[in-house]
């Protein structure tokens, strides 16, 4: 049995390996599928749903769905882009994202997705939830106003750091990022060099005393949309 599978993404033939996800196969072929919770160094989570594609007409998360020979995949269509925009807008109104005063601005993946999609303002009303900030740790802080519940830190803590600092608690709209202590991040074994801190796509889990280290104009997404690096690989 051959290890290679061939799928079609927006009409283009893409070769992938058995065991790859749609997201990985697309990326290897230089096709960017927008994503937020997915991270190349972590296991798939499938929670943000930004990477939703249509597989033979059915919606599937590209980050969790393995490629199979003959799949007809739709990615860059008006319908899907509108849905992805809607999801990004949902995340903006669900939390309190004050980009103008956030240290992550310019390097934030949520913001970068909104830029890529050309979102001027969300179509949904802002919910302005009351969320808390944990500033107890000497080197790291959590600002839950900015948390998008992507679970990257949860996975990185287990998979890379070999710790269990984070896990989700609560459910539904009350789901939140929990920590392995009664109250304070300072009481966990979280450390500043942890992968879990590095992988946060937004400004929710941040290193202290870094601030606005990179000047405006030189930040990651100031000039090129998120995903440009992947698209540059396309032959």
């Amino acid at each position: 049995m051959s290890d290679t599978v061939t799928v079609t993404i927006d009409g283009a033939q893409v070769k992938g390996r058995a065991g790859q996800t749609i997201l990985q196969a697309a990326e290897a072929a230089g096709i960017y599928i927008p994503r937020l919770c997915a991270h190349n160094e972590l296991s798939a989570h499938g929670s943000c749903r930004v990477c939703t594609v249509l597989v033979n007409g059915r919606p599937q998360a590209a980050c969790t769905q393995p490629v199979a020979d003959g799949m007809i995949i739709e990615n860059n269509t008006e319908k899907l882009t509108n849905m992805r925009k809607a999801i990004v807008e949902m995340l903006f109104v669900e939390g309190n994202h004050f980009c103008m005063s956030c240290e992550k601005s310019g390097n934030c993946e949520l913001q970068a997705l909104a830029y890529r999609f050309g979102i001027a303002a969300p179509r949904y009303p802002y919910l302005f939830p009351k969320r808390d900030i944990d500033f107890s740790h000497p080197d790291i802080y959590i600002d839950r106003n900015r948390c998008v519940l992507c679970g990257r830190c949860v996975r990185a803590s287990r998979e890379t750091d070999k710790k269990v600092v984070f896990e989700f608690t609560g459910r539904g709209a009350h789901r939140r990022l929990g920590i392995d202590a009664a109250a304070d991040l300072a009481d966990t074994d979280a450390a500043v060099a942890d992968k879990s801190v590095e992988v946060c796509p937004v400004g929710a889990l941040m290193r202290k005393r870094v601030g606005y280290a990179v000047p405006v104009g030189q930040r990651k997404y100031d000039h090129k949309p998120i995903g440009s690096d992947i698209e540059a690989k396309r032959a």
Binding site: F92, N96, H97, F98, C99, M100, S101, A120, A121, P122, Y126, F128, P129, K130, R131
Partner: peptide, 15 residues
């Protein structure tokens, strides 16, 4: 951003 999402003044919205 203030016109669009409330901006810095809207930081009071949680209180």
């Amino acid at each position: 951003d203030c016109a669009t999402m409330g901006g810095i003044p809207a930081m009071r919205n949680m209180v």
